[in-house]
Nucleic acid binder design. Structure first.
Lengths: 198, 198
DNA sequence: CTACGGCCTACACCCCTGTATAGTAAAGGT
DNA sequence: ACCTTTACTATACAGGGGTGTAGGCCGTAG
């Protein structure tokens, strides 16, 4: 469920999204009302107004079927580099977007990073590839993660050990990094996919 | 320019597409008329009717802004396997679609194939990857192509030589195939990208 | 020559649709 | 208790917008 919305508002938003996806155009106030059994268009209108105030919908006042679901810009932000010291993964920081339905990779919030170097060739990840990462700060052993280390973002295998966390590359030429318990380690996301353009 | 349409119809279709993409909803007959300087909504309506008859648009009669541009299902068909003897690359044959804007990979018609085996690991293409191919029957030396060989589709490097066409895998364990001039060889497409889900 | 399709003007009908006004009712929060 | 928020009913108005009718101009295929 999307945060900040009531159950009903969520249902309405979801209906509008589905309607839009199926038919290619937005429903009217009355069509929403009919779907939920409202006997007055006002009820649906109220919900839609609430969704607009909360920033989930937009519409042009007075004009029919001008509803547009915001934030459904079926795409994944490509975070080229991350500002040193301020690893904010806000969509606003993105230079570019990958126009791919994020749900293809599962649920959650995703972002993409362009791969520099060949430290992960063992996993068939090559320079220039866009790695799709699910934004989360935890990871399980063996997963490929994007971590922030001294203001730099790197892609590594995540291996917790008794000594600390080992960050292993899949290129044998690259040394494993050991992050001891006290040291700063921030996981930005775990790898969920890859997109390459040749 | 899209085939089968007059210049004007093309302009109208393009305008509707752009309007839709920018604002999230379709224009009205009068908005189309205004854009083209028509003094009567009828002129625009005629064009839209023609576009509907030709199958480029759909709309619900009587209801405003219910225009929907057809065939703009921004996605790439995934051709799991190709029927033996009938390698028809029709969209209708697709089991699944990759919901990715094809223009990301360039212009043309694209399709995707799921990779079987490890014959292309040298190019960091692994089992299960979706290879994006641009549908075309010609290829240049060195390009990765999907070819139809004896009712089977394989992914190989394309290398024309004086002896015929060599189809090289990028896994040294796999033997190069030589297709002599007389033998049947059909190129289905050249590789333009790759999508992996982990 | 003529029929036809593409392209356009002018006018008008009238349903669809957003939205305002006026209430009712239950659930919390303070 | 009081007030705010959520969630709805009922009714009505105004104008947005699809579409029909009537017609004109032009180029091209038959």
């Amino acid at each position: 469920m999307t945060k900040g919305l009531t159950d009903r508002q969520n249902q309405v938003l979801q209906f509008i999204q589905e309607f839009q996806a199926e038919r290619g155009y937005a429903p009217t106030v009355r069509e929403v009302a009919a779907r939920f059994g409202f006997r007055s268009p006002r009820a649906a209108h109220d919900h839609m107004k609430a969704l607009q105030k909360k920033g989930f919908l937009s519409s042009v006042p007075g004009l029919p079927r001008t509803l547009a679901v915001l934030g459904s810009r079926r795409n994944i932000p490509i975070l080229g580099r991350i500002a040193a010291g301020a690893p904010i993964l806000a969509v606003e920081e993105a230079d570019e977007f990958l126009d791919l339905e994020p749900s293809f990779f599962g649920s959650g919030r995703f972002f993409a990073l362009k791969v520099n170097g060949d430290s992960m060739v063992g996993d068939h990840i090559q320079e220039g590839d866009l790695v799709i990462l699910k934004a989360q700060e935890q990871a399980r052993a063996g997963e490929v993660v994007a971590v922030l280390l001294e203001d730099e973002v790197t892609l590594k295998h995540f291996h917790p050990t008794s000594q600390g966390v080992e960050l292993r590359a899949s290129n044998p030429k690259i040394r494993t990094i050991l992050v001891r318990p006290g040291e700063e380690l921030r996981i930005l996301g775990v790898m969920s996919g890859l997109v390459r353009k040749v």
